[in-house]
């Protein structure tokens, strides 16, 4: 996880951070590096969205493909479609190719967030196969909806990659971190243990217009144990091992996904929709 502090609206400067991240990964024999949500562009883009958007044929995409010849990577960027919709997207690059694109499906538009004003909503959530196993990408708020994690598990993914730009907010007495960091750590741990999956969370740091991003990137294993964890608020590069043996052991001990009754869920969901 490359816990970086991107410059708001400066794609060239952020591409340099990506290059440095990939170099760090290569020098540490890391196979896959995950950059935070919208870290190629910065987060509070507002009217800048069309100015920093890339298309599949853009030179930036070629640059990222080239970087992925060395190390697989997940980039967080604004992706423009042929019919000029702008998506908050995370793109998985491997072996010089785009392997998967996830367009954020849950765009927070409340409180301090205004994503649906600027972005089109993604309409798909798919697991995909890579050199590093079957993965699902969920961007930030996507992960706050338990349905996405449930679908990821049913779709056969053993690992969720979650790039985020999660802002710190809420000060509570007795807590070491802000309230939002506390909540993230609670749900990622619960998801990892409940679904018997690895959760790889890559969060950014820095400030935009006074709003800080808390960092604290890390990996949780299927037992809910911390594999690795970056510090809070400061830039970091942190790596850990995602071992399929651990997933196998957890799922052998508690084969909940094996026992999951998809037909029951579908029947009841259809009834709920009908009613």
């Amino acid at each position: 996880m490359a816990q970086i502090n991107p410059k708001l609206g400066d794609v060239a400067a952020n591409m340099a951070l990506y290059e440095a991240g990939v170099r760090d990964a290569a020098s540490q024999d890391v196979d896959l590096v995950i950059f935070p949500e919208l870290s190629l562009t910065g987060y509070f883009l507002r009217d800048m969205v069309p100015d920093v958007a890339v298309r599949l044929a853009s030179p930036e995409m070629e640059r990222l493909k080239a970087l992925s010849r060395e190390v697989s990577l997940v980039a967080g960027l604004v992706l423009e479609s042929e019919d000029h919709r702008f998506y908050n997207a995370a793109v998985y690059f491997e072996g010089g190719e785009v392997r998967h694109i996830h367009r954020k499906v849950y765009l927070p538009t409340y409180g301090m967030f205004d994503e649906q004003r600027y972005f089109a909503r993604g309409g798909r959530l798919r697991a995909f196969d890579t050199r590093h196993g079957r993965l699902v990408i969920l961007i930030c708020e996507d992960l706050w909806h338990p349905s996405t994690v449930y679908l990821a598990a049913l779709d056969g993914a053993l690992t969720i990659l979650c790039p985020s730009s999660s802002p710190l907010r809420g000060v509570t007495d007795g807590a070491e971190q802000d309230d939002n960091a506390r909540y993230w750590e609670l749900i990622t741990r619960s998801y990892a243990e409940t679904f018997g999956m690895f959760i790889v969370h890559s969060n950014r740091v820095g400030f935009e217009d006074g709003v800080g991003f808390w960092g604290g990137s890390g990996i949780l294993d299927p037992f809910g144990h911390t594999v690795c964890k970056a510090g809070y608020y400061d830039e970091a590069f942190v790596a850990g091992e995602v071992s399929h043996e651990a997933a196998r052991r957890k799922r052998t001990r508690a084969p909940l996904m094996r026992d999951e009754d998809v037909d029951l869920t579908i029947r009841e969901l259809e009834r709920i929709r009908r009613e």
Partner: peptide
């Protein structure tokens, strides 16, 4: 929570 507020505000000033 003074230690958390202090950390946030010092980082804020430095960054901005």
């Amino acid at each position: 929570n003074v230690s958390l507020m202090r950390r946030i505000l010092v980082a804020f000033i430095r960054n901005e």
